[in-house]
């Protein structure tokens, strides 16, 4: 699904972000991870199934490559929780977990 060039780009980003994070402000860590998620969503969207498309668009809409927690700590956490909830709801639907939960 992911073209090799895009996969390589993402792999390089993640590996080098791990290295740069050793020396940088802690607040950059969530931002780097979200940037990777946003780029993965952007790369995947052209070939995504009808079901996955809305989640990918929501992820891309919800990510700012310059947003850090210090700008609005409570809002930042709430925003990430909302994204996590969206991902989880998609998982429940796409993996047909509706009947499997306790």
């Amino acid at each position: 699904m992911l073209e090799e060039g895009d996969a390589l780009e993402l792999l390089a980003y993640l590996v080098t972000a791990a290295r740069t994070q050793l020396d940088e402000a802690a607040e950059y860590a969530p931002m780097r991870l979200l940037t990777a998620a946003g780029r993965l969503a952007e790369m995947t969207e052209p070939q995504a199934s009808t079901g996955l498309g809305p989640l990918l668009r929501e992820v891309r809409r919800g990510i700012s490559e310059t947003a850090v927690q210090a700008g609005d700590p409570e809002g930042y956490a709430e925003h990430l929780d909302a994204l996590c909830r969206a991902v989880a709801e998609h998982l429940v639907a796409s993996l047909d977990l509706g009947g499997a939960r306790p």
Binding site: E9, Y13, T16, T35
Partner: peptide
């Protein structure tokens, strides 16, 4: 330029 960006997490 593309390769540089791949290894530069800060290059938005």
């Amino acid at each position: 330029l593309r390769a540089l960006r791949m290894v530069s997490p800060g290059m938005l």
